[in-house]
Amino acid sequence: MATLSGRLAQIPGMGMAKGLAVTMKTMLRTIFLPGKYLNTVNYPVVKETPVARARGVIALDQEACTVCMLCARNCPDWCIYIEGHKEEKQPDKPGGRVKVRATLDRFDIDYALCMYCGICVEVCPFDALFWSPDYEYSEHAMGNMMHDMDKLQDWMATVPPPPEI
């Protein structure tokens, strides 16, 4: 406490003066050096690139999905709607077994309900759901926030490659 700054800090009202100095400094440098110190971007004109693994939106790989419903059942908001049917796949070689494969008819996520917890992505055993950093999908009507599986498939293109192990 014998240092000069320690002594200065003991002057009554010094903490208030410090606070005032901080806001004044921030104000002056935001006004005069906005390029360097401005923390925001002019959004619709300038766009910020989110980090690669940002939780922007959930994308679906239709090929990988087996209609197991685990995501829909684990969703805390019940915002995933899945319908599917069984398809018989003829054997590749004669004499083979006929395989039954589940096919998606509907895979909708209501993003007006979704709270971006990512449990569906975590729980998917077939790696069909991914986080995409895309964030520009707002709508004028709340009902339009329900996105179908084609839209979710389109978002697969924006999913970054998985991190190297």
């Binding site: 921030t26 104000m27 935001t30 006004i31 906005p34 110190y37 401005l38 923390n39 925001t40 002019n42």
Partner: peptide
Amino acid sequence: KLSAKMQSRVGPY
């Protein structure tokens, strides 16, 4: 405007 500058923001634009 001033509060925006004090928080490194632009304010009304």
